[in-house]
């Protein structure tokens, strides 16, 4: 089996960081904090690589004259403009806030608002796609909680608010806890596979 240098780096750095979590040795803990700090700095550098990737993809689309070229041009223009304005004036300047308030917020808010329709469509179709016990209980719970969340035209159904609280406090919490424990096990397994070099998402 090939054992390139980068595998050694990943395993070595990973083990040191992991040891810093569990061993109460000051040197290791300081080292762990330093490694995490470096990694977050590197992740910030990676962001520049990501921006370059975004730019290249859309530049290629634009220059290849494909159908979506116009959209790519729009993306590049808005990216460059924002970089210029926010970079030059700073993120809290009036101009930057103008862009944020009149582009970022309306579009992102509207995208979330789309979910108000998309999720109802999904709810309507769910039982046809998967008519199982899980789906039926899912949809009934969702409807009960929705009714208990809003003002029902001023009508108060006795016990509805209490039922909502009880569901949040007992069964929904129990399910969430079971799910979280299972996910925790999955995370440990996936992390260990990387740490022993069995999964290598990086190149060596």
């Amino acid at each position: 089996m090939k054992f390139p240098f980068s595998v050694a780096v990943a395993i070595g750095i990973g083990l040191i960081t992991l040891a810093g979590y569990f061993l109460n040795i000051p040197v290791l803990q300081t080292l762990r904090m330093a490694l995490i700090e470096w990694a977050t700095t590197l992740a910030a550098v990676a962001l520049l690589v990501g921006i370059a990737n975004l730019f290249t993809i859309h530049w290629n689309k634009l220059t290849s004259g494909k159908v979506g070229g116009l959209y790519s041009a729009i993306l590049i223009v808005s990216l460059v403009l924002t970089l210029g304005v926010v970079g030059w004036f700073g993120p809290t300047h009036t101009y930057s806030k103008w862009i944020f308030n009149n582009v970022q917020l309306p579009v992102e808010g509207s995208l979330l608002a789309l979910l108000a329709v998309i999720l109802v469509v999904a709810g309507v179709r769910l039982l046809r796609l998967r008519s199982s016990m899980l789906s039926i209980i899912f949809i009934i719970t969702a409807m009960v909680i929705l009714l208990a969340t809003g003002p029902l035209f001023g009508i108060s159904v006795p016990g509805l608010t209490e039922l909502r609280s009880w569901i949040a406090q007992v069964p929904a919490m129990a399910g969430a806890r079971g799910l979280l424990l299972g996910i925790g096990l999955g995370i440990v397994a996936a992390g260990l596979r990387v740490l022993i070099g069995s999964d290598r998402p990086y190149r060596g």
Binding site: G123, L126, I183
Partner: peptide
Amino acid sequence: YATAQEPLIGEETYAGG
């Protein structure tokens, strides 16, 4: 769970490999 055609629940995702 509501929107995907084939949803994976909880830990099943980690068993994908």
